[in-house]
Amino acid sequence: MKRIVIADDSATARMMIKRCLEIIGLAEAEFFEAENGKEGLKLVKQHQTDLLVSDLNMPVMDGETLLKWVKSSPKLIDLPVLIITSAGNEAKSKQLMEMGAFAVANKPINPAILSKILAPLLATNED
């Protein structure tokens, strides 16, 4: 069973992301939700996580800092991080990809977008 951590300060956004992931074939996954990057980091350390989905704009610890922490940790460096944000564009996406993000998607998301983005990951990690 896959373990997915969703970090977003909006419960609405977390619900939308979770529903989209369920629709594209991850209904059996175990989801853990965090309201900020600090909680998200704690969750990915606690659970053997297969995917971290994170917003950028969050209180306490933002998504960019969370990404930096994950990519600087030898234990977490291979964890795919998908950034889903309302503050993204080409320039920001490029910066985040250079920092090690698996992919960057702009809000609002839908299952078709997530399916396309996560296709390589789903194909290589089929249980």
């Binding site: 704009n57 309302s86 503050a87 993204g88 564009n89 080409e90 320039a91 920001k92 809000k107």
Partner: peptide
């Protein structure tokens, strides 16, 4: 939050970053 992001993406050139508050 979503409307603001879409609006800024639509009015700015793709190479221009923008920042939104909470």
């Amino acid at each position: 939050n979503t409307v603001a992001g879409l609006f800024m993406s639509a009015i700015l050139p793709p190479e221009t970053k923008f920042a939104l508050g909470l």
